[in-house]
């Protein structure tokens, strides 16, 4: 038994390195999507101290809108642009109707408000697009669907073209966001607002503009993740689950940290895959991916309550 836990999995990893690479690759693909979603959370949290519970449903809503628009006969890429417009409209509406009247309220109230947004979007989405599963318009968007077979170490490594596309697009988006935050005045304003509202106002930063901007960025992220995940699992309200996977990522990485979101996302994506294949399936009957990330996050929280990259909380007594 002990050997099954501590020795055999590692022997297997070294015996079949090609299979290990396959597992890591698949972990990387989900990991980068987790990281992307977590970034959406971090941006909104940093600029408004709001924990955005609605991020998950935004993924579903974006994917549904895209597929729905295409179903009306609108060409795929025009649908993408229109969906971006819808996400922008959503950001403006949320800022106007929900956030602006609640400025200055305690964080928990704003958190509850995002739960309200979630419930509203579920109902609204179902009314307009219906509740049945749909197929993501993968080929219409020109996303390649074949695969490439590599033979490292004389073994076998299959890379789905869809996965490669996801990794490339997500990496570009993450890199772009980081550059935007660090090297532009708008990005600086977003970071500034997260640090100190009063000071931000005093240098001429408009709360409203920044909030619309971060919610729109969250919307873009939602659309990209919606397309990527929808292409594998179909478009349904179950897609929301992927956003909840971002929760352990945030616990691990810390709510304020952009680096944390990225490293945390990749770590969780790969570790949960490794655990599932080498420990979960042989010892626990599989399906560990649904809970492993949360347990990992709990363990980290025990030792570092602020997460791996979060700001250290020092309280004076």
């Amino acid at each position: 038994m002990l050997a099954d836990i501590f020795i055999n999995p590692f022997i297997e990893m070294f015996a079949y390195p090609d299979f290990l690479m396959q597992v890591l690759w698949e972990g990387l693909v989900s990991g980068i999507l987790y990281a992307l979603i977590a970034l959406g959370f971090v941006l909104i949290f940093r600029s408004s101290r709001i924990f955005n519970f609605a991020q998950g449903i935004m993924v579903v809503f974006a994917a549904l809108t895209l597929v729905g628009l295409h179903a009306f006969g609108i060409p795929a890429w025009i649908s993408v642009i229109l969906t971006l417009g819808v996400m922008f409209g959503l950001a403006v509406t949320i800022e106007r109707v929900v956030l602006r009247p609640l400025v200055g309220q305690p964080d928990i109230i704003l958190f509850m408000a995002t739960i309200g947004i979630t419930l509203f979007l579920i109902g609204f989405g179902e009314t307009i697009f219906g509740g049945e599963n749909k197929v993501m318009i993968t080929s219409e968007l020109g996303i390649p669907t074949g695969d490439t077979v590599l033979e490292p170490f004389g073994g076998l490594l299959i890379l789905q073209h869809l996965d490669i596309t996801v990794v490339v697009v997500a990496t570009l988006l993450v890199g772009g966001l980081i550059a935007f935050l660090n090297y532009t005045s708008m990005g600086r304003a977003i970071r500034a607002l997260g640090d100190d509202h009063q000071a931000a106002l005093s240098v001429g930063i408009s709360l409203q503009t920044i909030w619309v901007l971060v919610w729109f960025i969250a919307g873009i992220i939602a659309l990209v993740t919606g397309i990527a995940w929808g292409a594998r699992a179909g478009v349904s309200f179950a897609l929301e689950v992927i956003a909840y996977k971002a929760l352990p990522v945030l616990m691990l990485g810390g709510l304020e940290s952009i680096t944390g979101a990225i490293v945390g996302g990749l770590m969780i994506g790969m570790l949960e895959k490794l655990f599932e294949i080498y420990w979960g399936q042989p010892l626990l009957g599989g399906n560990t991916e649904t809970w492993f990330a949360f347990v990992l996050a709990l363990v980290v929280l025990l030792f570092r309550p602020q997460g791996l990259f979060g700001e250290k909380i020092i309280e004076r007594v």
Binding site: A192, D195, Q198, A200, S202, V203, G204
Partner: peptide, 26 residues
């Protein structure tokens, strides 16, 4: 109109340079 605050309101997580750069936002 620019101002400072009695209880210092700076962007603690950002560098001095970035803080001063925010002053140019307008």
């Amino acid at each position: 109109v620019a101002r400072t605050f009695q209880n210092i309101a700076l962007f603690e997580g950002m560098t001095v340079l970035d803080n001063v750069m925010t002053g140019r936002l307008t």
